[in-house]
Design a protein around this nucleic acid. Structure first.
Length: 581
RNA sequence: GGCCCCGUAGCUCAGCUGGAUAGAGCGGCCCCCUCCUAAGGGGCAGGCCGGUGGUUCGAAUCCACCCGGGGUCACCA
């Protein structure tokens, strides 16, 4: 049920008819023909630019095309009037029933209202968070987690077969550092003085890990050389860290489908196989990179390395996959990891990364393009910084982990729903100010509250109506006669509701979940305004005991609004509030 | 210096596939509850959409160059 798609189809059908009749020449490109709601409601319900887009191709005056199309469209029962305006816009006024039909559609579908088959069950992998398993998740990860999870939810709703995935960087030197740091905490747990030297992780979060090691191994590792415990503790500590990370994510409401270990790529031939694939395409060679342009690192020297010819797939320079000593660079397992995703049959890939990884985008896209022969698109979404405040003052907190605020800190303070919604009220590539005081405020300038309040208010009205004897079940409301909905403010709300399916698809196409948050705010705003009108003009109150038909129509309308809010919040991973007291 | 992101009202930001008179919240000024949640609603003031060219019937939106702010930049992941 998508009014816009419906009318778009109608316009295209009639354009084809005009071609068939010879009014328009053959061979026209309709791809730029759009049907949109006009910004100004005075222009009607829907407008199309078809005449202007086609005028040049057809070598006709825009107004002539518009008038011919208007005649055709006006013959459709759904179209009340079709007027040519301005340079050649065609403004359509639609039968109110078209708009009103969104109400039973919402009531019948519940929180699936707006679900689309746009994705056609295409397999899409959303990789996000992927923090090093060396400590707790912090605020930056939180934003990535919220964004990635909401994007995944959005794509699922839009008909994709979505996999949420976390890449565990457990293959590099940082895990050795973790193991050594945990070993010191282990010594501490057994009563010795820990030596947390420079370069080790000092965070308190490793204390319980040290205790766990003590429980498992007793004193058997004490005073043993590193070579005897490093591998063991690396694995053990990583698992402990991942348990903590999983718990943190769960507190935020994020559940991954797949945790993929970088380590699993080593010694299994996976890296070699991915690189071989590139080599078979002639994209691997031994060479010496040019020195970086501009500022030259002081210790720069020319080195012969194994390079990937990423410039053939859009990168600026070729990238090393092996160090000069022959070992892999970090880029090599990343290539292998993405190759693995391709081999698992994903049709599309998305990586959600922090903004500091901007320099990484081109080379990874080049690798995926090369490995999939350009068949699997990779979109990389970078999430910008989160700046923390409390009452407008910069906020620092260092409970246990050094100088950073952890995900758990944030969720403990404001809860998962508020955290998620607020972090989605900005585009991913815009910095975000997060004020702990403001996000908990119950007022209009707090979007979370404002949207939740609209949902709760609907519930409250329905409860009142039920007390007054109305049957407020969705089944009953879905069959209500909607003709009593006539007021501009009512029809305005209904139109806004009808935008939902279209908005959802646009958000999914652009990988921009924040559009849902803004839409919900607008929808809530329309609802609050209408609700208030009832205070000024009593005949606009939702519940009018003396007018049961009108009341049912209005209850159906506001219940449909609540359903849309619940559906939208559901995608964002936020629980709709039943009441706000 | 190269690359990436950003630049829209006093502040924080939306702005759809290029579409008609550029929107919201906050802040400022003014108004609205005997009532389904005033935890709300309405109005006024406030903009050369960073700049200059270009493409187009039409540009905040696309392209080029420039100016500001941030990020990043050969064997760290």
């Amino acid at each position: 049920m998508n009014v816009f798609a419906e009318i778009n189809t109608l316009v295209l059908e009639n354009l084809n008819t005009l071609v068939a009749e010879g009014t328009l020449p053959t061979g026209l490109d309709f791809s730029n023909v759009a049907v949109e709601p006009p910004r100004d409601a005075a222009h009607g319900d829907m407008a199309t630019n078809a005449a202007m887009v086609l005028a040049k191709q057809a070598r006709m005056k825009p107004r002539d095309i518009a008038e011919a199309l208007a005649d055709k469209l006006a013959a459709d029962p759904r179209v009340l009037t079709a007027d040519v305006a301005g340079p050649g816009f065609l403004n359509l006024r639609l039968d109110a029933d078209i708009w009103l039909s969104v109400i039973p559609a919402a009531l019948n579908h519940g929180t699936d209202f707006g679900r689309s088959d746009m994705g056609g069950k295409r397999k899409i992998n959303v990789e996000f968070v992927s923090a090093n398993p060396t400590g707790p998740l912090h605020v930056g990860h939180t934003r990535g987690a919220v964004f990635g999870d909401a994007l995944a939810g959005l794509l699922d709703f839009a008909g994709f077969d979505v996999t949420r995935e976390y890449y565990i960087n457990d293959g590099g030197a940082q895990v050795d550092v973790l193991a050594r740091s945990a070993y010191e905490r282990y010594r501490e747990a057994l009563g010795q003085e820990p030596k947390i030297v420079e370069g080790l992780y000092p965070g308190d979060y490793l204390i319980p890990v040290g205790q766990a090691i003590a429980e498992k191994y007793g004193d058997s590792l004490l005073d043993k050389p590193e070579s005897e415990w490093l591998a063991e503790l690396r694995e053990f500590s990583t698992e402990q860290m991942m348990d903590m990370i999983r718990a943190d994510l769960k507190a935020l409401g994020v559940v991954m489908d797949v945790f993929f270990s970088e380590k699993s790529l080593y010694g299994t031939g996976k890296i070699e196989s991915a690189l071989q694939t590139l080599e078979d395409k002639g994209l691997i060679y031994q060479g010496v990179l040019e020195p970086p342009k501009g500022k030259l690192p002081e210790d720069w020297e020319a080195r012969e390395q194994t390079l990937f010819k990423s410039t053939e797939h859009g990168d600026d320079v070729d990238r090393p996959v092996k160090k000069s000593d022959g070992s892999w660079t970090y880029f090599a397992p990343d290539i292998a990891y993405h190759y693995d995703k391709i081999q698992r049959g994903f049709d599309e890939l998305i990586d959600v990364l922090g903004a500091d990884h901007g320099g990484y985008v081109k080379r990874m896209k080049a690798a995926v393009s090369a490995l999939s022969d350009g068949k699997v698109p990779l979109d990389i979404k970078l999430t910008q910084l989160v700046k923390l405040f409390k009452n407008g003052e910069p906020f620092k907190m260092s409970k246990r982990a050094g100088t950073f605020v952890t995900l758990k800190d944030v969720v403990d303070l404001v809860g998962p729903d508020v955290t998620r919604f607020v972090m989605l009220t900005r585009k991913n590539d815009a910095p975000l100010d997060f004020d702990f005081a403001k996000v908990l405020e119950q007022s209009k300038d707090n979007p979370v509250f404002y949207v939740q309040y609209a949902h709760a208010r609907v519930n409250s009205v329905l409860a009142k109506a039920a007390e007054a004897g109305f049957d407020v079940t969705d089944e009953n409301l879905a069959s209500a006669d909607l003709r009593p909905l006539e007021h501009d403010a009512e029809l305005g709300l209904v139109r806004k509701l009808a935008e939902w399916p279209r908005l959802l698809e646009a958000a999914a196409r652009h990988h921009e979940p924040h559009r849902i948050a803004f839409y919900l705010y607008d929808l809530a705003s329309d609802f609050h305004a209408l609700q208030h009108l009832g205070k000024i003009e009593p005949e606009l109150r939702f519940i009018r005991p003396d007018k049961p038909e009108q009341t049912l129509a209005r209850l159906a309308m506001i219940r449909a609004t609540a359903v849309a809010i619940a559906a939208g919040l559901g995608i964002l991973g936020v629980t709709p509030a039943k009441e706000m007291r």
